[in-house]
Structure formats: C-alpha cells, structure tokens
Nucleic acid binder design. Structure first.
Lengths: 333, 333
DNA sequence: AGATTCTATACAATCGGTTTCATTGCAAGT
DNA sequence: ACTTGCAATGAAACCGATTGTATAGAATCT
C-alpha cells in the first residue's frame, strides 16, 4: 500500500502537504491540492488509520464486554450499540466475557494500552473489584442492563422492581393467588430486584409471600424447564407462573404442556424481556417489554458524550418498560 | 500511564532493555531483569499495545462482517468465532453490515489502513464486486455461511442441497405428497440451493414439482407467518410445510394454529438451522441441525492459518448437518 | 522603494515502543 | 599476554502519519 511519502514524491510536495490535503484542504492552493489528489488517486493511497491513531491517541474504538454473545437479549443490545457507534464513526471491539473476571480485566487493559477509548459492559457484573484500584475510574466506562447499585459511572437500565411489580399486580388482578415464581440465578441482583417487585405486589393485595413457591435457576430455556418441573410437581395448586425471563417462560411452558396441562386454561405463565419468539409461542407470551436495542443505543450515546467530555444529560438512565399483554395469562376461572 | 522511558529511567537502563525485559527476558542478566521488573511494577507500567502494533504492523484483530447482529444464527456463529479468536490472542472487531455494500467496502479498508489483519464475512454476500479490483484478493478473507459459488478464498459452509434433500426425503417417506414450501428471499443462492435439494427429493419419489406450492419471503418469523398464511389459504390440500429456516417455521406454525389447524395432526412442519427455540416450540420442531458455533470456530481457525501463512488443510470446508427429528412432522394418516 | 502582512509550503519533532547494530567487559582458548 | 567469543547493554533508526514553527515569496501598506 502506498504511503504518504510516495504520494508526496509523486506530487512533488512534502508529506505535510499531503496530510493537509486530506485534513484541511482549504489551506492549500488550488493547484497543489489538485496535484496531490491526483497523485493519491493514482497510487490508490489511503492514510494508515493505525498511524493516525498512534499519533492522535484516539482509537475511535469502543470495547463491548458481553457476558454471552449467543444470548438473544445481549445480541439485541449489541445491535443497538453498533448502530450508534457506526453513526458516530466508532469501531466496535467485542469480547465474550463468560462472566470471567480475568477477561473483564483484560478488557479494561485494552483502554490502558490504547487499543480502545472506552468500555461498555453489559449485564449484571460491574467494576466493583476493579474499582478499588482507583485508576479504573479514569477509564471511560458505561454499564448497561445493570441493576441499580449506586456507582460512579453512567448506567442504562430498566426499573426491574417496578416492572415486576406491575406484572405481578396484573396477575393478581386476574385473580391468581397461588403464583409460582421461576426466578433467575439466586445471587444476581436482578433476580432479587424482580423478586422484591413481585413481593411488593403480593403485599398490596394482602397476600403472604410463600418462599416455597420460588424456584431459582439459570436464565435459559433449559433452566426454565427444570425449575418449572420442580415447582409444578411440588405444588399442584399453582394457578400462575411468574418467570423472570422469556426464555425461562418458554422452557416452563414446554414442561407444563408435557405434564399435560392446558395453557392458559390450567396455568397462566408470564415472561420478562419481550424477545421476538414470545409473540409466536403457543400460547403467545404475556411479558414485560425491555427495550433492548434502545438500551444499547443509549449506552453508546452516553459513551460518545463521555469521550467528547460532554457528560451533559443524566448519566443514570432508567428506560421505561411496558406490559405486553398476550394470551399466556388469563383470568382465573 | 507510565511509559517505557519512565521505567528505563527508574531502573537505570535504556528503553531497549525494558522492551527486552518483556519480549525476551532470557537476554537480560538476572539482576537487570529484576530491577526492570520492579520498576515496571512500581510504576504500574503496561506497554502501549497501540505503539507495539504500530511498530510491528500486526494488529492482532480480525473484523467480522455480520449482516444482522440480532439474528440468532449469526450471533451463534459470532460466538464460535470469538472463542477461537480469544484462544489465539486475537481481538474481534464487529460490524453490522445490513447487507450494505458500502459498509462491506469500509470493512475491507480497515485492513488496508491497518486497523485489522483480516476480514471474516458472514452470510450470503461475498466479495464479488470488490474482487475485480484484484487487490482485494490480497486481503486475508474468510467467508462463512456462504453458498458454494467457486471463490478464490477460504469458505465454511454446509451442504444446503443435501440437507434439504434429506429433509424433503424424510417428509416424503412419511407419506406427504402435497408439500408447501416456505422459501426464503427469492434472490438468494441459499434459497435456490435448498429449493433444488427439495426438488431432487421430489423427483426421487416421482412426484412433480408444483411451483404454486412455493412461497418466498424473508428469513424471519414475521415472514414465515405471512407466507404461511398465503400458502395455506391458497392450498387447502397441503399436508406438510417444508420451510427454509426455524424462524420461518415458527412463524408458519403460529399462523397454522391461528387458522385452527391441529399440529402435527393436520399439518407437518419442518424447519432449518436448529435454533434452540425449536426444541421448546409447540410442537417441538423437526429441523436440520446447522452447526453454527462450529462454523464460526472453523472460520476463525482458517483465518488464523491464513494470517500465519500456514494455509495447510482444505480451505473450502463443508460441515456436516443432521436431521433433528422431533414431533412437528409426523406420518400422514 | 522599503516595511509589513499574509499565504503556501517545507522542515523536523513527535507519538511509544521495537530492533538492528555497535560497544563494552569478561571469560575462555592459544 | 593476546586474541577470540559471547553475553549484556546502549544508541539510534524506524514504523507513517500529524502539526508547530520557520521561511520564501507575494500582496498590501506607507
């Protein structure tokens, strides 16, 4: 690939002039500009972005730490991030962390070693441990889909408590009182927040919370199927299942059907996230809409502001959720 | 962040020695090595990866061109790519092309401008147009999930023709003769290959191909639902639906159910890809397993070889598919 | 005309490492 | 004692662009 020197020689000017021909053409005389552009064209010259970045100390890339790339929800968030990134001329580096602290630390080092300008982390895990170092704070960092612990960096999230409360209230309003809960992983904040929202709704209706009606497990279809089986075989009187993700719900529905239950007649099931498949389920899934793409867009927008030193708007963004009523939950008859 | 000069000063050595302390410690005396390492530790020095890359002209990053990041299949392929990349110390740049040629070209320029060492493209579209330039050939390029046109770069794919033939044969063996086809986009090679496989199977059973039984549409649930509606309302005698993706199948199933059909009693449906949701569908989806993660792994492995100039093994890889028999297709009664 | 300003361009430093080549010092060989 | 060889280290070039400063020539002013 031709370099700036080749072009400058061919045009009979200095490398500086060639550089300016691209970065600040107004500074050059018409004649010189012509010659330089012609020479660059002839040699198919493209400035080495790497050299530019090295000189300027701005990589124009942002690293995204994703706990699981194959996860539908994260994929959608990533898609939102990508849109805003490309609109603003940023490249995206992507790393699948598998919730591994070492990988996350390596990610932060990418900024320290000038491979990326900032880091967007998706999911539960924040910078807790790394934060104590103090210097980690200096890294432009945005956290998306996190769960509301007060932190000193911008975050984008939904109000899990309120959304869960709304969904549980809906279920109660339909007359359900024995509601099984298929929760996510036990140690996750998001799980606790959603559980607390659920309990709040229960309380509002004067119903006591029964811990034996809660089953914890992974946020996956397989997890939902297993937890569902345990819960349904333990409690025959359950009339509704409040689950903490659409995938869990879909797994639980499979189990319920396999157990010979009729849905939604015998059992109401609700999800969380509103992934596309929920709409095509049988029965179509009543769930909480989580604006995944939008979360990604907002996260990347915050990152742009951060990198431009224009941290204007509110840095702790809570996006609105919405109840999506379909037919997997119905009035208790 | 401390630089190499700071460390060298503190350790009382030259920058060259500090550099060697990291890249080739054996070359240094025990004493010096100790001092340098101590100084680096004290200053929390980390070599600027950017400067290293600039000097060495190897970015250790690979760009992945994904037509749609939110697509389940691509997300899984990406996940496989990521695993191999991180195992081999490569960073991943990701770009959502939306099948836009300009974005694809910009991707190739990333290599020419030294931001990436190579490009992995996912999906149908190859380098056709860019190839004529000739110079594009010099870019380390791997194409995954493509469709078998002879090309001068490594590819990873499945045998769409054979897989479709196998699935169609299975359907015929179950006694189905009036089989509706919900195809993907009309202009895609993958669509034609799968259709040809289907026709081959038909021919083997001496059944004539009826073009009116084919409906084209996007590879999505919405597309499947729409095409399904058109097909089922046009032809009441269809006993099975051969669809070209699981998403299409899931959409079509929704439509069939909404039409009041009983599945699989009244209608058999088959998918393609074996996405996880198929297992939890109602009825669980009979489909063709496409090894998405594996495709990604192989693609990235090929890229590694390419970048190491060890293009040993076969560059045109065709991975095995498998019929996944569940219950959405059954014997015609 | 001579002084002053402005314009267009060149020169050279710079970004932060790596690497080649040269140099020094010490041990082994003759 | 004098070379020879090797190990350890430093000096400086280099990667390919950008940019601050200097300068020559043209234009403007007095």
């Amino acid at each position: 690939m031709a370099q700036i020197r080749d072009v400058s020689r061919r045009a009979g000017v200095s490398p500086a002039t060639v550089s300016r021909a691209f970065s600040d053409p107004g500074k050059l005389s018409k004649d010189t500009l012509q010659r330089v552009l012609k020479a660059a064209e002839d040699l198919d010259y493209k400035p080495s972005s790497l050299a530019q970045v090295f000189r300027g100390k701005r990589t124009n890339s942002v690293l995204v730490l994703v706990p699981d790339l194959a996860n539908v929800l994260f994929a959608r968030v990533l898609s939102g991030i990508e849109r805003i990134a490309s609109e603003n001329g940023f490249h995206l580096l992507v790393s699948d962390t598998k919730d591994d602290t070492d990988v996350e630390k390596a990610g932060l080092e990418m900024v320290e070693t000038h491979r990326a300008d900032g880091v967007i982390q998706l999911g539960e895990r924040g910078l807790k441990q790394l934060h104590k170092d103090g210097n980690a704070c200096k890294i432009p960092f945005v956290h998306a889909i996190e769960t509301g612990e007060p932190v000193p960096y911008p975050t984008v999230k939904i109000d899990n408590f309120a959304a869960s409360e709304a969904m549980a209230t809906y279920l109660m309003a339909l007359g359900h009182r024995r509601i099984g809960v298929i929760a996510g992983l036990r140690d996750r904040r998001v799980t606790n927040e959603r559980l607390n929202g659920f309990r709040k709704a229960l309380g509002s209706f004067g119903v006591a919370f029964d811990p034996t009606l809660v089953e914890y497990g992974p946020y996956s279809m397989a997890g939902g199927a297993q937890s569902g089986l345990r819960l349904l075989s333990r409690h025959r009187d359950i009339t509704a299942l409040f689950t903490m993700s659409d995938e869990i719900a879909i797994g639980a529905i499979r189990t319920a059907l396999d157990l010979g239950l009729k849905l939604p007649e015998d059992l109401s099931v609700t999800g969380f996230d509103n992934i596309e498949f929920g709409k095509y389920c049988t029965p179509p899934l009543t769930t909480v809409m989580q604006p995944a793409e939008r979360i990604g867009e907002v996260a990347m927008t915050l990152m742009c502001n951060l990198l431009r030193d224009e941290m204007t708007g509110d840095a702790q963004q809570t996006l609105a959720t919405e109840l999506v009523i379909r037919s997997s939950a119905r009035r208790l008859s």
